[in-house]
Amino acid sequence: MNRRILLNAKQIEVISQRLCCQLMELHGNFKNTAIIGLQPRGVFFARRIHRIIAEMTRNTQVKYGDLDTTFYRDDFRRGNEIHEPKLLNIDFNIEDLNIILVDDVLYTGRSVRAALDALNDFGRPAKVELMTLIDRRFNRELPIQPDYVGFEVDTRSNEKVKVEWNDEEGNKIWILENNSLT
């Protein structure tokens, strides 16, 4: 398996700052906006965004939640890999809020579809937007597009994009290529 680094820690930091500036431009002081990270891997990025937003707006009360979509997936009983349910933690009412769904990699769009379904069970938000750190733009299987994109990448389906969250310095995004399939 070949692997190459797509983004290093410094680049991820710059992108995160830029995305937060974009969010602030549209959502102001975040009084009516909540950030929701998608389990399992989107929550690391989402928490980071939440932290930066809190620093920038000096508002420590920005609402944050983790959303698990395991029970809403469309590949249940279809022989795919098994997804273990993770923690779901939304302790506020999403009714009439602006929700920013945050994931690390947007690929087929199916997780986001499941997330929209899951969100529906918590109420009717005023608006839902999607932020992704990496957009694998040519691999979509559903008509779902992000509103905020960190980095666009053109990949083939035998490649994998992996975001490695370590401490601040060690964050990396890899592209893994599986030769056996090429």
Binding site: F71, Y72, F76, D117, D121, F122, G123
Partner: peptide, 8 residues
């Protein structure tokens, strides 16, 4: 939860 149902 208020909506006690999932579509699994």
């Amino acid at each position: 939860r208020p909506i006690k149902k999932v579509p699994s």
